[in-house]
């Protein structure tokens, strides 16, 4: 297995596996975020658990960071290799005749998601790390001590229409990325055609409804607090 991950197919497997992991993470992220619409208390409880439980913070979080970085870095490496495989490009190339826009532009939808992640980290992750690990406040409580701070922070962030707009655009790009990426990961992992139809239907449903759900959450909090 030594040279497996250096080979073209080995890297396809690696991209597919990191994608599956990230999509599983996205699902659990959505499951917690939708609680903010259904029950602020339940959202606070779940957020506090995820933010303070040692296995999540010290095991799953580093794995997630590695997964995100790996998927982006390997994506860029493969893109560079693929571009170098055709030094002279066509004067006329009718890509739309044989493939979807999403499949031909994964690097651009990926870059849009990367830009969003930078914004998302500045918005939520860095303040969270600052509060817990630099200021040392692991209580999860509001400054006045009256209840958990998580729901209040979330609702406050979505007051700004520019931020909500950026999130909506980012999730549209995420949907486009997933619409090709999810079913593509099944193909890379060697899924046979017998199972492929059902898997592709599942991939399509996921790719549309999860980003749509995140858009709904952002819009819900924006309009609910105005």
């Amino acid at each position: 297995m030594s040279g497996f991950f250096k080979s073209s197919i080995g890297r396809k497997y690696a991209m597919a596996l990191s994608a599956f992991f990230l999509m599983f993470f996205l699902l659990q992220h959505f499951a917690i975020n939708i609680l903010s619409v259904i029950s602020p208390d339940a959202f606070n409880e779940a957020s506090h658990f995820m933010g303070t439980f040692w296995a999540v913070q010290y095991v799953l979080q580093p794995v997630l960071i590695f997964g995100v970085i790996y998927h982006f870095v390997m994506g860029f490496i493969l893109e560079a290799k693929n571009r170098s495989a055709r030094v002279k490009t066509y004067a006329k190339n009718n890509g739309a005749a044989n493939s979807s826009w999403m499949s031909r532009n994964m690097i651009y939808s990926g870059l849009a998601i990367l830009a969003f992640l930078v914004l998302h980290f500045i918005d939520f992750w860095i303040p969270e790390i600052n509060t817990k690990f630099i200021a040392g406040d692991m209580t999860g409580l509001l400054p006045n001590g009256e209840g958990f701070r998580y729901y209040e922070e979330l609702a406050h962030k979505f007051e700004n229409p520019l931020r909500v707009g950026a999130y909506v655009i980012a999730f549209i790009f995420l949907s486009l990325h997933l619409m090709h990426g999810f079913s593509s990961a099944f193909q890379s992992a060697g899924a046979s055609s017998m199972r492929k139809e059902k898997l592709q239907l599942f991939a399509k449903v996921y790719s549309i409804f999860i980003p749509l759900g995140f858009i709904f959450i952002a819009l819900f909090h924006h309009f609910n607090h105005h």
Binding site: S8, G95, N98, S99, S103, H180
Partner: peptide
């Protein structure tokens, strides 16, 4: 020196 498949289906 061939590129890598990204499953575009072209």
């Amino acid at each position: 020196g061939f590129g890598n498949c990204t499953n575009t289906g072209a």
